[in-house]
Amino acid sequence: MASEGHKTTATKLVYMANQIAAFFHTQPKDEAVAGVADHINHFWEPRMRTQLFAILEQEDNGLDDLVVEAAKQIRKPGPVPA
């Protein structure tokens, strides 16, 4: 039961990514992968995307297949300007 303890940011990111995937699953297939990637590129701050890539490295990361597939199109954050 999620919020009874404190959820970690990682758990939340997985949850959010999967929520996005759940919407795009119902869209026409060719739009779905690009849709997930676009959405994350548009709205996720670099820190969040960096963490997402770290999560993607792990096995059993709990991410929806659509997110995994979309990962190739998700932008890798560059260094933060000083």
Binding site: H42, P46, R47, M48, P77
Partner: peptide, 8 residues
């Protein structure tokens, strides 16, 4: 790059 939203 987009910034953080309140919950983030």
């Amino acid at each position: 790059e987009p910034g953080l939203r309140i919950p983030n």
